[in-house]
């Protein structure tokens, strides 16, 4: 196991749980969406860390592909959520 595994794996776990805590406890809808994104980033970090095989070895490409997919899925969900929020505030202004 490499030092980079320790460092980045650990911070991936921490970032994910930071994000989870904010998703559960934050009041602002927008910040919850940001928190979900941060949480996802933590998971992606774990994936990229396990793909790493040291400075001279080629990394495992599969987690990289998975993270690419994950990033695109995350931006789709974020876009839908933001539009929902916007529409909701418009409806509330009309009420």
């Amino acid at each position: 196991m490499l030092t980079a595994h320790w460092l980045y794996g650990l911070s991936g776990c921490l970032i994910m749980t930071f994000g989870l805590r904010a998703v559960l406890l934050n009041d602002s809808l927008l910040q919850r969406i940001i928190a979900l994104n941060v949480m996802g980033t933590g998971v992606f970090m774990i994936l990229i860390t396990i793909a790493y095989r040291g400075p001279d070895a080629a990394p495992d490409p599969i987690p990289h592909a998975l993270v690419l997919t994950g990033i695109v899925v995350a931006v789709s969900a974020t876009a839908l959520a933001l539009t929902l929020i916007r529409r909701l505030t418009e409806e509330q202004d009309n009420d």
Partner: peptide, 13 residues
């Protein structure tokens, strides 16, 4: 960090 972990595709994305 992604670039450092030899994941340039992910870094670009």
């Amino acid at each position: 960090a992604w670039a450092r972990l030899l994941a340039p595709d992910v870094a670009l994305a």
